[in-house]
């Protein structure tokens, strides 16, 4: 969406245009529920948080000044709403990830070479991926099993397509940390695919 298109959309939202709202809702609601599920740990609370966030978005849309993208603004509200709810339920959610396994800890020998060569994924063709939902379902399950930070980074950066800077601001993490989490999340998805390839 160009800045001009986005500004027009924001004006329609501010004017209470239901069609514009439905458009934005369809575009972002599923991703909002995914991020909130990662933060809250259950889908039902996440659905409620997403709905509350939409209410907050629509009530504050008149104050949106375009300092960030509309999506970035919406997800800022979503993440804050989800974090507040988690805090009320006595859970502290931190997205920062310093150390942790990256899934490749045992993959290399002492000289840094592959212990076991990665296989050629002959069965995992684009045709098979397009033909059945099973491969994507595996990917979705692998993403759902990620720690909250990695999951949020994956959805915001790789799926919603927010700028790296926006993702870092929303989650309160450094850009270096975001890249580490993105890499780890991809490794986890790769490992899940390896099991079915």
């Amino acid at each position: 969406m160009s800045p001009a298109e986005e500004a027009a959309l924001v004006r329609r939202l501010a004017a209470g245009d239901g069609e514009a709202f439905a458009l934005v809702w369809r575009r972002h609601n599923a991703a909002m529920v995914r991020v909130a599920t990662g933060i809250l740990g259950n889908r039902a609370s996440a659905e409620e948080v997403a709905q509350d966030s939409w209410i907050a978005v629509m009530r504050a849309i008149g104050d949106f000044r375009g300092d960030c993208s509309l999506a970035g603004w919406i997800f800022t509200i979503l993440v804050n709403t989800a974090r507040n709810r988690a805090a009320r339920e006595g859970r502290m959610v931190s997205f920062e990830e310093t150390d942790g396994p990256d899934g490749l800890a045992d993959a290399f020998d002492g000289r840094g070479r592959w212990r076991r060569m990665p296989a050629l994924w002959e069965e995992l063709t684009p045709e098979r991926i397009v033909a059945g939902r099973s491969v994507l379902a595996h990917v979705e399950a692998a993403i759902a099993a990620l720690p909250p930070g990695q999951r949020a980074v994956i959805v915001l950066r790789a799926q919603v397509g927010l700028e790296a800077r926006e993702v870092c601001e929303i989650l309160g993490i450094s850009e270096g940390n975001m890249r580490v989490m993105l890499h780890r999340a991809r490794l986890a998805v790769r490992a899940a695919l390896e099991r079915i390839a």
């Binding site: 239901g18 709202f21 809702w25 995914r34 709905q51 990665p118 919603v160 490794l187 790769r190 390896e194």
Partner: peptide, 30 residues
Amino acid sequence: QLRLATALIALAGGEEPGQDPSRLAAILDR
């Protein structure tokens, strides 16, 4: 493999069957 994983992650976010339109209606109602 990592490129494929990266592409599939983006694809996995592209569609969400079962988005319940009644949720949209509930928000508009509120």
